[in-house]
Computed example of a mutant assay.
Amino acid sequence: MQYALLIYSPPEDTDRAARPVPETLGALLDGPDVTGWARLHASGSATTLRGGEGRTLLTDGPFIDSKEYLAGLILIEADDLDGALAGAGELLRETRPGTAIEVRPVIEGRFRGA
C-alpha cells in the first residue's frame, strides 16, 4: 500500500530552497520503499483556489493559516500503517527540530474526472 508522508516545518525554516538535502536524509529518500518525493517552497509562495457559487477565488498563501507549513511530501510503499510509521520515524530523526510528519494512506487508482 502507498502512503504519503506530509512534512511540516516550523515557520522560521524558510531558507530551504537554497539548502541542499542532508546526505543522511538523501540516502533515506533514495531507499527502495520511497516511490517519489518533492521539497516545496515556503507557504508564502502558495496560491490557493477556492470554488463556489460558480466562480473561482484566488488567494495568495496557503489554504490554512498555520504556524507550520507544508514543506514537502514523500510517497512510500509499506505493508501497513505500522510500516509507514516506522519509515516516517526514521525520516523524522534526520529532520530539523520542530518538524512534524503526517502519514496518510493514498487512495489507489487515478482520478479521471466525472
Rank of each mutant, 00 (worst) to 15 (best):
L40S: 05
A4D: 05
V106W: 11
L75G: 02
I76R: 05
L25V: 14
P10W: 04
G113C: 07
R16L: 06
I101E: 09
P97E: 15
A114K: 02
A71I: 15
A78P: 09
L85F: 06
T35G: 09
S66V: 11
D65H: 14
G87T: 15
D15W: 07
E77D: 15
Q2F: 06
E108P: 09
T56L: 15
P22S: 03
G109V: 06
P20E: 07
Y3P: 01
E108S: 09
L5D: 01
W37N: 03
T14S: 08
V34D: 05
A46C: 09
Q2L: 03
L25N: 05
L6F: 12
I64H: 14
D60F: 03
A42T: 14
G113K: 03
A71Y: 13
R112I: 07
A42M: 04
A100T: 02
G31C: 08
W37K: 02
E108A: 13
I107A: 10
I7F: 08
I107L: 13
T14P: 00
Y8H: 14
D79L: 13
R112P: 00
I76V: 15
G61I: 04
L29A: 09
A100R: 11
G54V: 03
A27F: 06
P32T: 06
G109P: 01
R55G: 06
M1Y: 05
A42D: 14
R93W: 11
K67T: 12
G36L: 10
L91G: 01
A38R: 03
M1E: 02
A46V: 09
G113S: 02
G52Q: 04
